[in-house]
């Protein structure tokens, strides 16, 4: 049984101009020890689906799902008490802006101990020693001195390390990292990603990495789920995805990478991601797709078989060539 099992997750936001569907029928399955990357551009709903799972969405959001199971517990029907015992303990999350994710009014040590107080039956002294141990684990030099520091006294990279320490304080089974690195410099980004992978290997937890950077995906993930305009359009193992993308969107996205360029003109995807007011009728990618046929503009495609990367496409690609109808 997967650790995290989400089927047909839909999230709607109430806005001044009507409902906006941010996540549209997304399935997520994460097994113990998995490293799953969720890739997508802005507006693809990649963060929203995970925030929905954590119960961190604002009140304007409505969440619907056929199945929302974590570690055998149904999160949809769980009461606040049960939820709270899981979220923050078994599922932890780190965010993009390390500086603003820490409360500037309290010391690092206080915030670390606070996290443990909520979930772990530890004494004061045990909490203190565990805090030091955690900071050592995430590679912060002089942990004892750092515990007394305030967030503004640390750099962005160090803050992100503290956030990771807080996230793993309760030995979570699943760690969700929402764009943990783009606010950081390249050399620091490499350090943080390496740390996350090392921790994942050491503790055996599952890691969900939300990102838009294909380079980060290639170097960290085992499995990749590609999202577009709120839908999951493809899911494959990382090597297969980069070698043989099945959805035209994935294919075009990879082709647009400057490092894969063969000429000065990059093959680019025309147009923009559809927003609230211009959602196409059929396949959401159809207005930008080179391979789109009449059917794509009319009918909403369903996911292809796993052999074709679950591509949500009428005519999935194999080795860059569009196939006949699948369904």
């Amino acid at each position: 049984m997967p650790l995290l099992d989400v089927r047909n997750l839909c999230v709607d936001f109430r806005t001044a101009n009507g409902l906006f569907r941010a996540v549209d029928g997304v399935d997520v399955q994460v097994n113990v020890g998995d490293v799953l990357a969720i890739v997508g551009e802005s507006g693809s709903g990649k963060s929203v689906s995970m925030l929905a799972l954590m119960g961190l969405l604002p009140w304007t959001a409505t969440i619907n799902a056929d199945l929302l199971h974590f570690d055998g517990v149904d999160l949809a029907s769980a009461n606040t008490q049960q939820r709270r015992s899981i979220i923050g303990k078994d599922v932890a999350m780190i965010f993009q802006e390390p500086m603003s994710s820490l409360n500037p009014c309290f010391t690092i040590g206080f915030q670390l101990r606070e996290t443990m107080k909520a979930h772990l039956p530890l004494s004061r002294r045990e909490r203190q020693s565990r805090a030091i141990q955690l900071l050592e684990q995430v590679g912060l030099p002089e942990p004892e001195r750092r515990l007394k520091a305030f967030p503004h006294q640390l750099s962005g990279g160090m803050c992100q390390r503290v956030m990771i320490a807080m996230a793993i304080a309760c030995k979570p089974k699943l760690l969700i990292a929402d764009e943990p690195t783009p606010a950081l410099d390249v050399t620091i980004q490499a350090q943080i990603l390496e740390l996350l992978l090392d921790l994942q290997k050491d503790t055996g937890m599952a890691l969900v990495l939300i990102t838009h950077d294909m380079g980060v995906v290639a170097e960290t993930a085992q499995r990749v789920s590609v999202q577009y305009a709120g839908q999951k359009v493809e899911e494959q193992g990382v090597r297969d995805l980069f070698a043989n993308p099945h959805h035209p969107y994935t294919h075009a996205l990879l082709a647009a990478l400057p490092e894969r360029a063969t000429s000065r003109q990059l093959p680019s995807i025309p147009g923009v991601v559809p927003g609230q007011f211009d959602r196409p009728k059929g396949c959401l990618f159809s207005p930008r797709c080179t391979y789109a046929k009449d059917r794509c503009f009319q009918e909403v495609p369903v996911a292809a078989p796993p052999a074709l990367g679950l591509a949500r496409c009428h005519y999935p690609l194999v080795d860059g060539i569009a196939q006949r109808e699948v369904s």
Partner: peptide, 11 residues
């Protein structure tokens, strides 16, 4: 579109 090289020049 049957080949992969026919992505449009988008600009």
């Amino acid at each position: 579109a049957t080949t992969d090289s026919s992505l449009p020049e988008g600009s």
